[in-house]
Design a protein around this nucleic acid. Structure first.
Lengths: 355, 355
DNA sequence: CAATTCATGGCAACCGGTTGACAAATGCAT
DNA sequence: ATGCATTTGTCAACCGGTTGCCATGAATTG
């Protein structure tokens, strides 16, 4: 066998223009096979099935591969196997900072385990979400749905094709990662009780939000335990604006402490109350939910029940990857702890205004 | 319909039916061909090359495809063609809210044009960034780099393989999308001058940030025009914490107005100054940069030079997709306008404190 | 009516790895 | 040296579309 150099290995020369496609002509396992003097299939085995070939051949092939700067073609690999080393993440709303941390957690875990993350958004619409999910399904090994808006049945249908992990919602038969709101809400309510509050309002989130209901239930339970009265108010949208609009209802309710479905609502509510001359926390205590980015930018900084969202993203990705690797529960819910983050927007009630 | 559990992750050695079958057996063009009574290649043409087959056959095939709920296999398509209908976006730091609008803009544009977005992060490291870029290159049609930290040369090298668009930096020979800071900074400085300020401090960003230098230059130019004095201060990190740490230098500088490299620095600086009893904006005016999410949560809400980041993401994606489609400039910079968003953190100077 | 386009569909060779089946080579005990 | 089990490498058939080339028949033209 002659020591023949590969015609392509001349990076120093001028514009290596090949007729036809864009100038990428990567080495293939066939090139390696030729250099190493073995069959392409042996190369394939050496590179993917450790132990299937002798140590000697293994080394030979690895050197040839390194010399040619070989990289597998992911599509060629995906075609027969169906595996892509990629998973999808669908979030309800990219604009919503709640998902920032989830995305970050998932992305970090993905790259750490040599996976690639593909991102899609549902714009809060069940239909768009389903479309996006279907589209992604074709190209990924698995899917994470963060706060999905589609039916349980649709989720289960998707899960028949490939592993699916759900964040922020519990779906029977599907692996889920859900913040356990009870601890955090319990701490919040005890703190309210200790500060002399008697009546707590809950500003709810979107009606289709599973989480919003859990939070309301958690508040009711905690209030019963602490012998406080709980009232429920609705919001139009779970945004800063939506929060502003609830200010009237909050005042009308007579509650002196408010727990909101999320931080955005809390921030909007606080802004509107302050604009109306109401002191926070002297006259009304406000507690948000999630501890999103920016929750401590406000004056006073927002007290909030922290959901470890980054951790949720990480945990969901880890679970998915375990599932793909063959280990891990095919169902069941993983609960992560929530905790109260005490800042300035909650405190002792001062009925007469400033102390 | 029976309640049948799906043997999801059971890769052990069960009664495996078909090898490689990932759980769902999708229809292929061969199935369609059989149903429609034509050759697979005709199906392929009917589905991708409009006009290549007769209207009659076209219809026949489309009906068969619809009946079988056919979806192309992206890998099978990508293998011979190299096209994936996917592009990559690499951001310097997923934690940084600056990038969220960019991500959102790119994602929206992508799905709107039937592309899929894959996301990666460089963690502010040039090396990680390069690795991520190389990895992505194999699976995408093109790449968007938002605030890249790697060399110009590396960027150009990547661009040889596939189209690359850069956001927030100008690289010779590469298509770029860059906010034009001059208009926004000009407005900010004129406003400062009108409010009686004489000396303006610039709190710079990371040394390797191309943008930070542009902003400093813009400030110098505007100050010269308005006959104000400009001084430059450094920051350790472009974060809220970094902003807090610059407070001492700001006070020592004697400047009454401050422009910061980004909003996070501005927010940190404001928090620290207020904690020291300094009134904003009565004693010091603060102007941030970017108008990130949460910039209006502060008290007073932050005045800032808005970079239309979502627009940048959109524009970059649009440019990339045009490039992939064959149209569009292969190089040249697209400038998007910045503007001053006047909120409460800047205003007339009151040397004696409160009016 | 013959000659020449032109539109249409079929054939088959790819793209680059993976993998079951099998043969050759090796090891080991007899 | 023979027989048998075990490695190790090869062959060839995929995976599912794409596309250059060719044959066919219809349409156009002289």
């Amino acid at each position: 066998m002659t020591e023949h150099t590969v015609p392509h290995a001349a990076p120093s020369s001028g514009p290596d223009k090949k007729p036809g496609r864009a100038g990428k002509s990567h080495a293939t396992i066939y090139d390696i096979a030729k250099v190493a003097g073995v069959n392409p299939s042996t190369v394939s085995r050496a590179l993917s099935k450790p132990g299937r070939v002798s140590a000697k051949t293994q080394k030979l092939i690895e050197e040839a591969a390194a010399g040619l700067d070989y990289q597998v073609n992911p599509f060629a690999r995906a075609l027969p196997t169906g595996r892509t080393n990629t998973f999808g993440l669908i979030v309800a709303d990219i604009t919503n900072p709640t998902f920032f941390d989830i995305i970050r957690g998932a992305e970090t875990t993905a790259t750490g385990r040599d996976y690639t993350l593909v991102l899609a958004e549902s714009a809060e619409s069940p239909a768009t979400e389903l479309t996006a999910a279907r589209r992604l399904m074709a190209t990924v090994d698995g899917l994470i749905l963060a706060s999905p808006r589609m039916d349980d049945d649709n989720i289960r249908a998707l899960a028949l094709a490939k592993p699916v992990v759900v964040i922020n919602r519990e779906v029977e038969g599907i692996p889920c990662v859900v913040p356990d709101v009870n601890k955090g809400i319990g701490e919040a309510v005890r703190s309210m009780a200790a500060n002399g509050h008697k009546k707590v309002a809950y500003v709810a989130g979107p009606p289709q939000s599973w989480m919003s209901e859990r939070r309301w239930e958690g508040l009711q339970a905690a209030c019963e335990w602490s012998r406080l009265e709980a009232v429920r108010l609705e919001s139009a949208k779970p945004t800063v604006d939506g929060g502003r609009q609830t200010a009237r209802d909050v005042r009308a309710s007579g509650a002196t402490a408010v727990l909101t479905y999320n931080d955005l609502l809390a921030i909007g509510l606080m802004q509107e109350l302050q604009a109306a001359g109401i002191l926070v926390p002297d006259q009304v205590s406000i507690v948000g939910f999630d501890d999103i980015f920016g929750a401590d930018f406000t004056t006073p900084p927002l007290t909030t029940v922290r959901s470890p969202l980054g951790e949720c993203g990480e945990a969901a990705a880890t679970r998915l990857l375990d599932l793909l690797g063959g280990s891990g529960d095919p169902a069941g819910t993983l609960r992560v702890e929530t905790e109260l983050v005490l800042r300035g927007s909650s405190g002792r009630i001062m009925p007469n205004g400033r102390s």
